[in-house]
Design a protein around this nucleic acid. Sequence first.
DNA 1: TAGTGGTCTAGACCACGTC
DNA 2: ACGTGGTCTAGACCACTAA
Lengths: 264, 264
Amino acid sequence: MSANPASNANPPAPESGVSASASASPSPTFSPLYQQIKGLITQSLESGEWKPGEIIPSEVELAARYKVSQGTVRKAIDELAADNLLVRRQGKGTFVATHNEERAQFRFLRLLADDGAEHPHVSRLLECRRLRASADIARQLDLRPADPVVLIKRLLQFDGDSTVLDEIWLPGGVFRGLTAERLAEYKGPLYAMFEAEFGTRMIRASEKIRAVAAEPAVADVLHVPAGFPLLSVERVSYTYGDRPVEVRRGWYVTTGYYYQNDLS
Amino acid sequence: MSANPASNANPPAPESGVSASASASPSPTFSPLYQQIKGLITQSLESGEWKPGEIIPSEVELAARYKVSQGTVRKAIDELAADNLLVRRQGKGTFVATHNEERAQFRFLRLLADDGAEHPHVSRLLECRRLRASADIARQLDLRPADPVVLIKRLLQFDGDSTVLDEIWLPGGVFRGLTAERLAEYKGPLYAMFEAEFGTRMIRASEKIRAVAAEPAVADVLHVPAGFPLLSVERVSYTYGDRPVEVRRGWYVTTGYYYQNDLS
DNA sequence: TAGTGGTCTAGACCACGTC
DNA sequence: ACGTGGTCTAGACCACTAA
């Protein structure tokens, strides 16, 4: 369309607060601008500059701050939203994701009743104490053996049925002030408490699922006979930078309920 | 920069092969252009204009065909690639996804050895016959009761261990020429055969997972004692348009292997 | 009415793969 | 050298929300 000769529009002087390759290295360590922006935004999230539930600056503001175009900021935010770190709301702004949202609940406990309905559950705290990490737990949490950890045992009841028994290990350093009292008085999801009280956000988790026979101690708590088939779920949860911050071992009674998984 | 007054660059005459709202309805049934393009591309995929593994026209060509900008086509393809319907390869082009790719394998059978390794498996066909759908199967496959269906039973062996027993129901109409012979002679994943031989591509699946005690018949095939804890996996697979085209019931022996799931 | 995110366009340049 | 997808920019307009 525009018949202007000598066309050379965009490449602005390389005075962007960020840059791809420092000197004369054309491609070896090439990283797109929007990835760098994504990293900067993640830093601000991690440092607590914008807290869970809060609104972050508008795309135009961020573009000005980082000296890039709005489109570049947009692409960075797009990916962070896809990763569930941010939530976009048209007409309102972009917000830091929270484990309090309805959707976030189901993300980490995909247990549905046989009719497909999502039932509410209540949590009963069985135990909460500090101890030294076993070699196995230390390895999974990227700690040294015998480092302090917090162990939580709890029971989840769906409609009064004891359905899930969880053993949760957390690094003692990060969760310094965590006690049975504080756990008991907090309403809502555990992960919501972790992010609100300890500044630790669970970003993703990896689970190993097996069918096992209930050991007597477990069977007792879940009110099933010893040897009863249970779903064994071993989870490791990660926070920013893919650092592991939780190991969880769960036993699920899957009579009347099932674990829902979507492959796509 | 360009100081041209009377600026009004983009909105081209509304003569695009596609359009959002026909007449004077401003928003009620608003659909972004790129969504419409996405739909058109999906149609071409479904109709077989571009077959699995083949390359599709370049972004520039598609933009010309649909009379939209390359950026709009790009966004449509971006989403289709995110949905695993297309695969982008820089410098080469965009290709129709296939169930033959290594990555696709693991997508629908997430069974790993205890050490985290992905072991190869062999499939042994136990049974393949045609029968009339039960009420339950008919409902799940969106058929009428007593409609013809194909039932396949097979055993998967990992390192010689009988690990997975599958019962697979398929609509008889779509899988007309499916016989034990054709199943036996085909190498590679079942879904790869379905897309190559019957033009039916599995896009996504939904699984209900439980722990159950092995019934005698099942226990026998899997070489475990009756009552042994097994992972029960009930899967419904969908093709284009979210139409269900497979019901699968699997029993997994999870000693030495586990079902891997990532929450994100 | 103003501000936000959402869509669409157009054009330039870069990185990658192939001929 | 050429074509492909990938990045980046700039600007316009649309849809949604709230004051």
